[in-house]
Design a protein around this nucleic acid. Sequence first.
RNA 1: GCGCUCGUAGCUCAGCUGGAUAGAGCGUUUGGCUACGAACCAAAAGGCCGGAGGUUCGAAUCCUUCCGGGCGCACCA
Length: 639
Amino acid sequence: MLPQLESRIVAAVSQHILIRYGLSTPVVLEQPRQADFGEFALPTAFQLARERRKAPRAIAQELVDELPSIEGVRSLEVAGNGYINLRIDRPAVAIAIAAPVVPPPPAGKVLIEHTSINPNKAAHIGHLRNSILGDTFVRMLRAKGHQVNIQNYIDNTGVQVADVVVGFHFLDGKSLDEVRALTLLPRFDYLCWDLYAKVSQTYATDEALKARRAETLHAIEAGHGVLAEMGTLIADKVVDYHLDTMLRLDIQYDALPRESEILHLQFWAAAFELLKQRKAIYLETEGKNNGCWVMPGSAFSDHREDEDSKVIVRSNGIVTYVGKDIAYQMWKFGLLGQDFYYRYLRTYPDGQKLYVTSASPEGATPGISFSHNDRVYNVIDSRQSYLQDVVQAGLRALGHPKEAANSVHFSYEMVALTPRTCTELGIALSDEDRARPYIEVSGRKGLGVKADDLIDKLIAAALREVESRNENEPSETRQKVAEQIAIGALRYFMLKFTRPTVIAFDFQEALSFTGETGPYIQYAAVRAAKILAKSTEPIAPLPANLGSILEDEELWQSLLAAARTDSALGLAIAADEPAHLARYAFQLAQAYSNFYQKYPVLIETDPDKRNFLLWLTATYRAQLVRTLGLLGIAVPAFM
RNA sequence: GCGCUCGUAGCUCAGCUGGAUAGAGCGUUUGGCUACGAACCAAAAGGCCGGAGGUUCGAAUCCUUCCGGGCGCACCA
């Protein structure tokens, strides 16, 4: 494949520069702006110009004259004011592309935490962005040979669960049994969605109810009594719904670490001792934080003065959220000296087993651990970057700079709603809000789009299209195809924006299946499959001599476009940016659509050329399927 | 106030470690289906890359500064 050739060129040029000039200038290979410039371009002469104090063009000429020949490279030429353009040996590359994908060498053990939705209400579109980003990055890393384990953290003892318990018990006067009965009704997660909004709004006017919140939270943290039981019941059921919702998007997990176990196994106590020993935190004896254990601001920021230190343990002795997070992060790297027990929870349709943490060995599956990772990605929205900085600083202060450096906050911006979509949802907006580019969603206000509602809506829209185009297909297969298209549309929509971009969600835009969308890419793969299915002849291996076929510039460019998947994957991983791969998928589909239009395959009369076109169609098909697979998007049987 | 982040075509966004004439989708205008299925293709119009300085052979990209959005700076999670 192409990457081998690329690294061969880079190696040859670097070595030459080292020998000839004694410089270890990093060599970069670019794609020329215009196709007829060649396959690759080297801007190396510009870099050397500075050190050699010589005109770039003269250096480029010197390089071209003196560079030894490189296998697979046909010619070098100086262009512009110092570029070196490379033309490669086309038939050799074509044949290399046809070679099977070599499995990557085993890489390090990686943990990715994503989803991590508060288990007190249904998932919404913002959560979908998190899960889709995380899941896609998992697929990308696995394709590169990493052993990845996927964690979905469950904060089942936090205030948000407490709020819903308050709602059922104190606001609606429900007993434990009554709540248990409710959990068995359909869409219990939607019921909680509404109740959570109701409770949050009632707090504003009802001080007595607000006092119940602290009481409930303490009961849940302690882990016994009716309130705690109710909390467990609610959280477990809502998590079940979240797992089902995510499974619709083909998103799975290996383990669900729960806050309740972090409390009961006293992870924090172990971390606290280590933090004190290493003097990473100290007991404040004056000022507003008097009596608290704090981390000095200088530990996590160059800009912060000491008065901005972060409280880790409150003056009443109770640890803060960040404190627990430091302990959890230590566990991820195996630095805590203890582990969870793991209880079997469910088996996914593909046979993959899911485990949930447990506080005792009873009922636990022995011999399992998800700790001791080399690298950790936390997929958490960018609003929490300050806290993630503190967690990282904690590791550094404990004397683990390597682990701190391998802690990645895989941050992303929120998903908001366009004013138009708010209006469609029946949400009243002020004139001020209507003028804004987007409106932030809010669980407390019940303002948002539920994930399952959106998926249902997408499926319905896709089904209408599928039915109008495929009258003869049975309804079950049409339903299945509509689901694949809907998921493709949703996943691509969430992936095409880079992480720091706020997505202003708009129904009209999300429900569109034309242009730069998942279905466009799926459609390209389906069309390729259709040609291959209709062709009655087997595809012969490419001959060494392809004659004049590859001299057709457009055909050659088309072939080249189909060969860049590995490069695109590598760049996307290096940049921690799934959007790069998503964009590549779209470009690949565009290149294929263009080829499809321009080169009718089955009616081609020259048998050699027909075979080549068939071969290229199969190559495109394989690359499209593979790239879509990395994005978690299936290719339907028809569209 | 401090920190982070963004400002690119009418709209929504790409632009990887600075590199050749700044790209795509939508929208607009025009052309292409007796079909390897048009969820498509081709073409056109549309840009002082927020402003001003600087570094460089070269800046949308790096630095400084200003302007304008967003987010974060709890003994909440």
